[in-house]
Design a protein around this nucleic acid. Structure first.
Lengths: 196, 196
DNA sequence: CAAACTGTACCGAACGAACGGTATAATGTC
DNA sequence: GACATTATACCGTTCGTTCGGTACAGTTTG
């Protein structure tokens, strides 16, 4: 059994409890493996477990978000696809974001660089799409950031209110909102292009 | 010395490390108090420390945000004031939000109701302002949620990128963005009223 | 074929350290 | 003297981790 087998359980646990709250006892219970067995698959201990989950997350992000955003097609349709994927992973806003969770806790410093890289790549990909849609460099980057901001914020609010609808609404409105030309004051509508 | 004396140190610690990561050793070091002294001031232990910080946060939110939003004046000016206060507490995006941090970790269940209350009150207050600005009930509520979503999301992104500018930009644009009538498709501009 | 060996998967028990928390006696302060 | 405050020492528990070892499926070797 490869260690990837246990990624789903680990992901669920780290998302819910964070690094410090996800104790080896809980991990042992969740994976069905004894503590000692865990060290057979993850000689590096808890840190390696997190790293493995982050590896898997990197792969998922690339295959389901980044690749998808880079594919040819209507920019708005590509953003729509991203939204659909996000609705799946975050289970309609009921599940929090691991990258955000790892920003706090005693292991913050250990994983911060990786988390930073994830956010950077994500923002970058959206920025590229928006540039293709006709926005200039600076505005595209601002809106790329705003997209991730809305997603992350919506997750927090949905968690806090125990209600997925804020997240779901944000995901529904996001593509249109990003492409819209009128929401920034003093901004002239760009010439919209379609596809590549 | 009242126990409120130690709220700043505790706040800083819980914001950075979360509930599980903020160990009594760290708390002892940060406050300069021995364990025994800590339990003299906080007989309820760690939970009481968090509760005390949340009490303080409740008071701060009411005095600096809610009251301010309820005061008479131009809606946009009141939202502007909220932004200024938030830039202060979150130190320009360099500091995370305690309420968001407490949503994960092993003590999630203990504090979730209080956190939920904080978000509800905050959204409610913004919603009220937007209704005064001429928006109907439903749209005002949606934008009230969106405001908190943008704030929380911007904090996350600023933390992740180690760069306060995303948060600062969101705070700068927020009032105008909330009042703007054109960013939601199919929405007709309301009759904007000023003050009360 | 059978005996010996190898590697992967797993676990019970225990490790030292740190955890949250509590006595008790000594201090300072009015 | 009374009372708030503190330091020292300690409690039982749980933490992340490691040790020693079992079970078993191949594979190699005689």
């Amino acid at each position: 059994m490869p260690k990837e087998t246990y990624v789903p359980s680990l992901l669920r646990l780290f998302r819910q409890y964070g690094y410090d709250g996800a104790t080896l006892s809980k991990i042992s219970e969740a994976t069905g493996l004894g503590k000692a067995s865990l060290y057979h698959h993850f000689p590096g201990g808890k840190d390696e477990m997190v790293t493995t989950v982050l590896d898997s997350l990197d792969r998922w992000l690339d295959q389901n978000i980044l690749q998808c955003l880079k594919r040819p097609g209507e920019p708005i349709a590509r953003l729509q696809q991203m939204g659909d994927r996000l609705l799946e992973v975050y289970e309609g806003g009921r599940q929090p974001c691991l990258s955000a969770i790892l920003l706090s806790g005693s292991a913050r410093d250990v994983f911060h660089d990786r988390v930073k890289g994830i956010y950077r790549a994500w923002i970058e990909a959206i920025t590229t799409v928006l540039k293709e849609a006709g926005f200039d460099e600076e505005l595209a980057r601002q809106r790329g950031e705003e997209a991730v901001i809305l997603i992350q914020g919506a997750l927090i609010v949905s968690q806090a209110l125990e209600d997925g609808t804020p997240f779901q609404r944000v995901m529904k409105q996001l593509p249109q909102q990003l492409i819209d030309s009128t929401s920034v004051e003093g901004f002239e509508p760009p010439t919209l292009r379609t596809g590549t």
